[in-house]
Design a binder for these strands. Structure first.
Length: 455
RNA sequence: GGCGGGAUGGCAGAGUGGUUUAUGCGACGGCCUGCAAAGCCGUUCACGCCGGUUCAAUUCCGACUCCCGCCUCCA
C-alpha cells in the first residue's frame, strides 16, 4: 500500500517510507490530565487512531506512543483547589480520558507513558544537553538555548524577529534570550518535585515528549502528530531538544498536525473557556456518532462543532448500520480486504470524508442487491478499519443498554400484531402512536415488526 | 508585522483541466405499505470576485475581497 502524508516540515505531501518497515514508530501528543478532556483532545486521538489502524494493516509492527502529561501547573492548581494530591487528581482524570477513548472506539496505543514515570529519562537528557552546551543553569532553572540549535524555527517556518512587538516574550531575569525555554524548574516545598542535580524541581513541558519518545520508540521516529497549536513552540522545542541530545539531524521524519475544532466559528480553546467535554457529547450521542463527526472533515481542516453535525453523523451511521444489518449473517472476516476506494482514500493523507463516501456507496450497492459476497465483506472490514460498525445493528438501533428491560415494548408490539391481524388498524395505529410518544419507531416487514429508538 | 489554512449546491463536505460534475443530511415527486417506517427510483447540481494561460478552468497562474489559525498555556 502506498501511503501519502502531508508533512508540516516540507509543507507538502510525501510518500510515507518508514526508516524500518519492520517497526514503524509514531508519537502523538496526548492530554494534560487536569480536568475532563475536551473535544479538542478527541480529534487527534480519533484521527491518529485511524492512521494507527491503517499502518497496522500495512506493516507488521507499529509502535504507537501517546503520552499523558500528569505533572503540570494546571494539575497542581486543580489539586490545591480540591485539597488532593496532584497524583490523585492526575490519576482520576487519566482514568476518565481513557474511558472517553474507549467509548470513542479509539484503540489503546502501544505505549501510554506518563511524564512522572519518566523523570529519570528527562533528567538524563537535560544533563546531556547541559554537557553539550545546548542548555544552561540559571537561578535554579535549566533552560534550553534556542540559539545553540541552528535549525530552530524550521518546523514553524519562523525566524528571529517574527514575533509582533506587542506579544513579544519577555526575557526573564534568568533567561538569556527570549526564545529560550525551560527544561527544569524549581518546585517550592509545597509543590510536587523530584530531586535533581539542580535541586528539587519538576520538568518543563516540552522535555517530556522528547524523553518519552526516545524511551518508547527511539531517537529518531517516523511520525510525530498533534494539534496545530503545538507546532510552535512545543514541537519546535521538541525537535531542538531531541536533535541536540541525539546528535542526529532528524527527530521525526513526518510531522502531522490536525486542525482545530471551532464553536460558532470561534476556536475552541482552554484560554477562551469555550471547550466542550468529550463526556458531555457522549452523554447525548452514541460514541460512534461522536467519532463519525470528528472524522467527517479532513483532519487538517477546521471542524465546526455543532449539534446538527452530531445528528447528521447519527443518521449517516444509521444508514451504514442498515446495510450492515442486511449482511449480518455474514461475519466480517478479519482478513477480508477493504475496498480499493476506501483504502486509497485513507492512504491519501487520511482522507476520511472520501472513505465515508466509499462506505456509503458500498452500502447503497448492498441495499440495491448489487453487492457480491466480496463487496459485502469489504464493506464490513472497511468500516472496521475506520473504527465503525463495532456493535451489532440491533444494539445500535435500540440505543442505550443492552440490559434494559424491553418486555413492555415487545408486549405492545404483540398486541398491535393481533390488532392488525384482525384488521383493527385504528387500534394498531394507537399503539404505534403510544410508542412514538416514547421515542420508539416501528418498522413492519415480512419478517415481523422491529422497533428502534427514534433519536 | 511574520508564518500558515480557507471561500464548492438548502446545509455538511471530498475532488477534478473537458467525457456519467463524489458522498451524507434535508426537501420534493413516485414505487412499496392497510397507513407508516425502512428501502428503492427520480427531481433539486455548486464551485468568492476580477484578470491571464488554454481549443477548454471550479480545477493552473496573478491581483482583489472576506474568513480563520499560530506567533502566549492550549489538541
Amino acid at each position: 500500500m502506498r501511503i501519502t502524508l502531508h508533512n508540516t516540515l516540507s509543507n507538502s505531501r510525501e510518500e510515507f517510507a518508514p526508516a524500518n518497515p519492520e517497526r514503524v514508530t509514531m508519537y502523538v501528543c496526548g492530554p494534560t490530565v487536569h480536568g475532563p478532556s475536551h473535544l479538542g483532545n478527541a480529534r487527534p486521538a480519533a484521527v491518529f487512531d485511524v492512521l494507527f489502524r491503517l499502518l497496522s494493516r500495512a506493516y507488521p509492527n507499529v509502535a504507537y506512543a501517546r503520552n499523558i502529561t500528569d505533572i503540570d501547573d494546571k494539575i497542581i492548581a486543580a489539586a490545591e483547589k480540591s485539597g488532593e494530591e496532584t497524583a490523585a487528581v492526575a490519576a482520576r482524570w487519566r482514568g476518565e480520558y481513557e474511558r472517553d477513548m474507549r467509548r470513542l472506539f479509539v484503540l489503546p496505543p502501544t505505549f501510554a507513558p506518563a511524564a512522572t514515570e519518566c523523570i529519570g529519562a528527562m533528567i538524563k537528557m537535560i544533563s546531556l544537553l547541559i554537557k553539550k552546551e545546548n542548555a544552561y543553569e540559571s537561578g535554579g532553572n535549566v533552560l534550553f538555548s534556542a540559539a545553540s540549535f541552528p535549525a530552530y524555527g524550521a518546523l514553524s517556518n519562523r525566524r528571529d524577529g517574527d514575533a509582533p512587538a506587542v506579544a513579544r516574550v519577555e526575557a526573564g531575569e534568568y533567561k538569556r534570550d527570549p526564545a529560550d525555554f525551560v527544561l527544569w524548574k524549581p518546585s517550592p516545598p509545597e509543590a510536587p518535585g523530584w530531586e535533581s542535580p539542580w535541586g528539587r524541581g519538576r520538568p518543563g513541558w516540552h522535555i517530556e515528549c522528547s524523553a518519552m519518545a526516545a524511551q518508547c520508540l527511539g531517537e529518531t521516529i517516523d511520525i510525530h502528530g498533534g494539534g496545530q497549536d503545538l507546532i510552535f513552540p512545543h514541537h519546535e522545542n521538541e525537535i531542538a531538544q531531541s536533535c541536540c541530545a541525539s546528535g542526529k539531524a532528524v527527530f521525526a521524519k513526518y510531522w502531522m498536525h490536525n486542525g482545530h475544532l471551532a464553536l460558532a466559528g470561534e476556536k475552541m480553546s482552554k484560554s477562551l473557556g469555550n471547550t466542550l467535554t468529550i463526556s458531555g457529547a457522549l452523554a447525548k450521542h452514541p460514541g460512534e456518532a461522536v467519532r463519525y463527526a470528528l472524522l467527517a472533515t479532513h483532519y487538517r481542516h477546521p471542524l465546526n462543532w455543532s449539534e446538527s453535525l452530531l445528528s447528521e453523523a447519527k443518521r449517516a451511521l444509521d444508514s451504514l448500520y442498515r446495510a450492515a444489518a442486511a449482511v449480518t449473517p455474514l461475519s466480517a472476516k478479519e482478513d477480508a480486504p477493504p475496498s480499493d476506494a476506501l483504502a486509497d482514500a485513507l492512504a491519501d493523507d487520511i482522507n476520511t470524508p472520501a472513505a465515508f463516501a466509499a462506505l456509503h456507496s458500498a452500502a447503497g450497492d448492498i441495499q440495491r442487491g448489487k453487492a457480491g459476497e466480496e463487496e459485502k465483506r469489504a464493506f464490513l472490514s472497511g468500516a472496521n478499519l475506520m473504527g465503525f460498525l463495532s456493535q451489532n445493528p440491533d444494539e445500535w438501533f435500540k440505543g442505550g443498554d443492552a440490559a434494559a428491560d424491553n418486555s413492555e415494548i415487545e408486549e405492545l408490539i404483540e398486541r398491535r400484531r393481533r390488532a392488525r391481524e384482525n384488521r383493527d388498524f385504528s387500534a394498531a395505529d394507537d399503539i404505534r402512536k403510544q410508542l412514538a410518544a416514547r421515542g420508539i419507531v416501528l418498522e413492519d416487514s415480512p419478517e415481523g415488526t422491529k422497533w428502534r429508538s427514534a433519536s
